[in-house]
Simulated assay, not measured.
Amino acid sequence: MKQILIFVLFAALLCWLMFSPIYKHVLIVRQAVLQQEVDYLLEIGASGGYGYISSAMQEQSRQRLAGFGMRPEDISYELVSTNGQSASNPYDPLPRGTGISLTMSYPYEQLFEIDRLIGLTPPLPSDRMKAFGMKMSEYVP
């Protein structure tokens, strides 16, 4: 009986050691892709030609992230400007010197369920990974 228990515990530990790095790699890649997308949207949206990040830009971003295996409907965008104006209105771009801050988030999608094998508690289903960035608008009317 003792040998069976040791075998089961060893098998669980072996599974965790084999598969945990793969899931951690997926997490790291998703976080990096989110941050890269935030930086890209801010670079384009705060440029002299735009001064906003429209819903069409956000939809294009969703499609790019879908290419990395993310579900587009689960990606959320939070846009805020430093002067209180809407940062997503293409008909009223933010003037030069106004900050645009963008926060994107995506759920963890049970990436940490295998950690239960060694007694770690995974994040809640409502928890989300986030990427944040801020850039000053360069738009001059």
Rank of each mutant, 00 (worst) to 15 (best):
P90G: 12
T98Y: 08
M70S: 04
A66Q: 08
I100D: 00
R62P: 01
V38I: 03
G45Y: 01
S126F: 11
P72V: 11
Y77G: 07
S137H: 01
W16T: 10
S20F: 11
L117Q: 12
Y108S: 08
R62S: 06
L34D: 00
L65M: 12
M70I: 02
F132N: 15
S61Y: 05
Q31V: 02
L124M: 15
Y40S: 07
D115K: 14
L34I: 06
Q35H: 05
Y139D: 00
I28F: 04
M70W: 06
P141F: 05
Y52V: 01
L17Y: 05
A56V: 07
Y23R: 05
S126N: 14
L120E: 13
C15E: 06
A56S: 05
Y106M: 14
Y139Q: 00
D127K: 11
L14H: 07
M104R: 06
R71Y: 01
L34F: 04
T103L: 14
Y108P: 05
Q110P: 01
E78V: 12
D39G: 03
P93A: 10
P107N: 13
V33L: 04
I22E: 06
G49W: 07
E109G: 04
T103P: 03
K24W: 02
F10Y: 07
G97C: 12
S76L: 05
M136W: 04
V26S: 00
M134V: 15
I28G: 02
V38P: 00
Y50R: 11
S54K: 07
Q85P: 03
P141I: 08
G69E: 05
T103F: 10
G67K: 02
K130W: 00
G67F: 01
K24R: 04
G84V: 14
P93I: 10
L117G: 14
L5S: 12
E43K: 04
L79Q: 08
Q35D: 02
L9N: 10
K130H: 10
Q3E: 13
L9A: 15
S105Q: 12
L41A: 08
S88I: 03
T103M: 14
M104Q: 08
P21G: 06
G97L: 12
M70V: 03
A11W: 03
S137G: 03
Y108T: 13
M134E: 12
P90D: 15
S54D: 08
L27G: 06
I44S: 07
F19P: 09
E113M: 07
M70R: 01
D39R: 05
F7L: 13
V29R: 09
N89F: 02
D127E: 15
A32W: 04
T121G: 09
S81A: 15
R116N: 15
M57S: 07
L5D: 13
F10W: 03
E109A: 11
Y50C: 02
V140E: 12
Y50N: 13
G67M: 09
E113T: 12
P125F: 14
S126C: 11
Q60Y: 03
G119C: 10
V80N: 07
F112I: 15
G48D: 03
T98H: 03
Q58I: 01
Q110T: 12
S126Q: 13
E37H: 03
A12P: 08
S76A: 06
I44Q: 06
F132L: 12
R30E: 00
S61P: 00
T82V: 02
G99E: 14
E59T: 09
G97K: 15
M104H: 00
